[in-house]
Amino acid sequence: MLVLQGIVDGILAGALYALMGSGLTLVFGVMEVINFAQGIIVVLGAYFTYTFASHLGVDPFVTLLLTIPIMFTLGYAVYMLLLRPIKRDRVIMSLLVMYATAVVIEGVLDLVFGGTLVEVTASYGTSSVHLGSLDFPNVYLLAFGLSAVLLAALFWILYHTKFGRSLRATTQNLTAAKLVGINVDHVSALTLGIGVGLGAAGGMLFGMTTPFNAASSYDLISRLLVIVILGGFGSVWGAGVAAIVMLVIEDVVAVVWSPVWGQTVFYLVLALVLMFRPQGLFGRRLARAQ
C-alpha cells in the first residue's frame, strides 16, 4: 500500500512539475534558448500569488487572472528588449542573458521579501481526500487539475491555431519559417510570454505546496532541466511524461527505501535512457541540423 501511495504522490507532484517544465521546453523548442530563469520565474509567480492573495484576500486560483497576464507581458518584454537584439552567438549569448535575468529577479525578490520562507495558503490547502488508506491532498489534486487544463490548452494552441502552426514551423526549421513569411520575432516573443505565463501558474501551485524564498529557484531549475532533458528538449509532451516518471521513481524509492536513493535511482534511469536515446524520450534527433 505504501508503494501505491508513493505512486499517487509521484503522479500528483509530477503533474505540477510538468506544468513548471512545459514553459522551459517550449521556449527551447522555438528559440533554442535554455531559459535558466525558469526556476526564478516560477518563484516570482509564487511571490505574485502570495502578495495578491494576502493583500487582496482573494483565492490563490483567482490571482491567476492577474499573475498570468503580468508574467506573460514580462516574458514578451524580456524577448523584445533583451533577446531580440542579439545578432551573433545567439545560443550562448541568450543563455547568459537569461542567467543574468534570473540573477536580477532573485536580487529584487531578496530585496523586497527578504529570505524568510513564505507559503501561499488557502482554506482547502490542508485537507485531503481519503480513499481507503490512500491520501489525495486537495492542493495536489487541484494542482493536477490545473496542470491538466493548462497543458491541454497549450496543446490546443499548438495544434489548432494559426499561431500554433507558426510556432511549430519555427520549432522545426527557423530559416524555412522565415522564408515562408512567419514573423519569427513575434512568434518567439509570444512563446517566451507563454512560457513565463505558464511559470506563473506553476509558481502559484508551487507556492501552495512548498514553503519558498528566492533561493528555492536553484533546486527548482536543476530539477526542471533534468525533466526537460529526459523528456527531450523542445517536447512539451515529453516534459509531462518525464516529470511524472521522475517523481514516481523518486517517491516510490523514497517511501519504500530512502529519499537519498530516490534521486540517485532517478539519475541512474536518466543515464540509461540517455545512453540509448541521447535526444531524450520524445526529443527529435538533431532537428535543427536537418
Partner: peptide, 20 residues
C-alpha cells in the same frame, strides 16, 4: 528512519512514509 538530502524539494513521500 528516513534520511534525506539537502536538495529535497518534495517532502510528501517522507511524510507519507512516517504517517503510514
Amino acid at each position: 528512519f528516513k534520511v534525506y538530502p539537502l536538495e529535497t524539494a518534495d517532502f510528501t513521500p517522507i511524510a507519507s512514509a512516517i504517517a503510514a
